[in-house]
């Protein structure tokens, strides 16, 4: 039972990361990030279920969700600002700095 949930958590993490690494559209990168966070939710809630500590893990997850929404709001505000500057959502348009 633990292993099955963890395997799916690993898959979510991987799919999200894949989207992040290969995507070009800024919004799609953020969608990838959202998929990655599902792994965290799944592992916490499953752990709480197994231990009978659902109150605690739900507290964790609710805080996590609030943080995640805020992060998304700021990220999307950045996307809009970038769009105002370049007129495109392509991350390749954001390649002036050399890293």
């Amino acid at each position: 039972m633990v292993t099955t949930y963890l395997i799916f958590a690993g898959l979510f993490f991987f799919i999200g990361l894949y989207a992040l690494l290969t995507g070009r559209n800024m919004i799609r990168l953020l969608i990838g990030l959202e998929i990655m966070t599902k792994a965290v939710v799944l592992v916490f809630i499953m752990a709480g279920y197994l231990r009978g500590e659902e109150f605690l893990t739900q507290s964790y997850i609710i805080t996590f969700i609030v943080v995640e929404v805020t992060l998304m709001a700021v990220a999307l505000a950045l996307v809009i600002t970038a769009y105002r500057n370049t007129g495109s959502l392509d991350v390749r348009g954001l390649a002036r700095l050399k890293g």
Binding site: I31, A73, Y83, G87
Partner: peptide, 21 residues
């Protein structure tokens, strides 16, 4: 979050210009 995503997509309206590889 979906509302946020959809409104930004609507605000930017350029989604078909970015061709994914």
């Amino acid at each position: 979050i979906t509302v946020l995503f959809v409104s930004v997509i609507a605000l930017t309206k350029e989604e078909d210009q970015v061709r994914e590889a």
